[in-house]
């Protein structure tokens, strides 16, 4: 079974501030790490391999330094890895990211199961997975809370919905996004890390892609455009009420009602 896991490098911390006067992003030298949600996807891939055999590959799109997370995946047990990186890919929104990843995946190999994390901590859209599935024209199930097993060329999964669990049988090749906590991710192993130090990381740039049209990548290929970024108008209120009890009750009630906080 050929398993692929899509992983992304994200900033180590989300703490960015915008200078309210200049509108400039204040960066506090944040380091990078693997998107925590992707660790669950990777663990699911490794478990499937242990149970049914096959290979686990990982792919990431990002700047060259994102190779660090492929090495991390190797230290957890991934067999092969690819990075999709080109200056032309910069500034990609979900659409362009999914297109680029799908192009890279086609180049990288044929896969039975593609696993994605539920969402990223920086993009935070939970959309890249389903958009990749569309670009590859394969079935997709999101919000998977349990992988029941593999039956022939199908995978059995439980999808979490608002009130129900839908039990689905999905035929290969397919894409699945898994929930946080679906499994406990293993820690990278020191031995594996040593062993895989020199393992190849495949690099794909624009010239490797089947679609050579530059306008489908990066900012040009993005359908959405960020017009501006600004600090949130803080709706963080801090008020003190010191009144008779009935006035207090009335104030609390009207506030929770107008802020739509009632159940």
């Amino acid at each position: 079974m050929e398993i692929l896991v899509c992983i992304k490098q994200v900033p180590g911390s989300n703490k960015v501030e915008v200078d309210p006067v200049t509108g400039v992003l204040k960066r506090n030298g944040a380091d990078s790490k693997m998107n925590p949600y992707d660790l669950y996807a990777l663990e699911c891939g490794l478990k499937l391999k242990e149970q049914y055999g096959g290979r686990v590959s990982v792919i990431t799109m990002g700047p060259p330094q994102a190779q660090a997370i492929i090495k991390e995946a190797y230290a957890m047990g991934a067999d092969a890895g690819a990075i999709v990186s080109d200056r032309a890919f910069g500034g990609a929104d979900v659409l362009a990211t999914a297109h680029t990843l799908a192009q890279g995946i086609k180049k990288f190999g044929k896969f039975d199961i593609i696993l994605c994390g539920l969402q990223t901590t920086d993009g935070d859209t939970a959309q890249v997975g389903p958009e990749v599935s569309e670009q590859l024209d394969i079935p997709c199930v999101c919000n998977v809370k349990e992988i029941k097993g593999v039956e022939g060329d199908n995978i059995l999964v439980d999808m979490e919905m608002a009130q129900d669990i839908e039990h689905l049988k999905v035929s290969f090749p397919c894409l699945i996004t898994v929930q946080k906590d679906i499994v406990q991710p293993r820690l990278p192993s020191y031995l594996k890390k040593k062993d895989t130090e020199d393992r190849e990381i495949v690099m794909y740039t624009l010239k490797d892609m089947e679609d050579q049209n530059k306008n489908n990548y990066g900012l040009n290929g993005s359908a959405t455009q960020v017009q501006r970024i600004f600090p949130p108008t803080s709706d963080k209120v801090q008020v003190t009420w010191d009144d008779p009890a009935d006035v207090l009750a009335e104030k609390i009630y009207s506030t929770i009602k107008s802020r739509k906080l009632l159940g």
Partner: peptide
């Protein structure tokens, strides 16, 4: 942005090669 909406919208957006803004 329900469990259905969050997976249906991206598939549709991608089919029409168009933009989708989450949340």
């Amino acid at each position: 942005a329900t469990p259905v909406g969050r997976q249906l919208a991206p598939r549709v957006a991608s089919r029409f090669n168009t933009g989708l803004t989450a949340d």
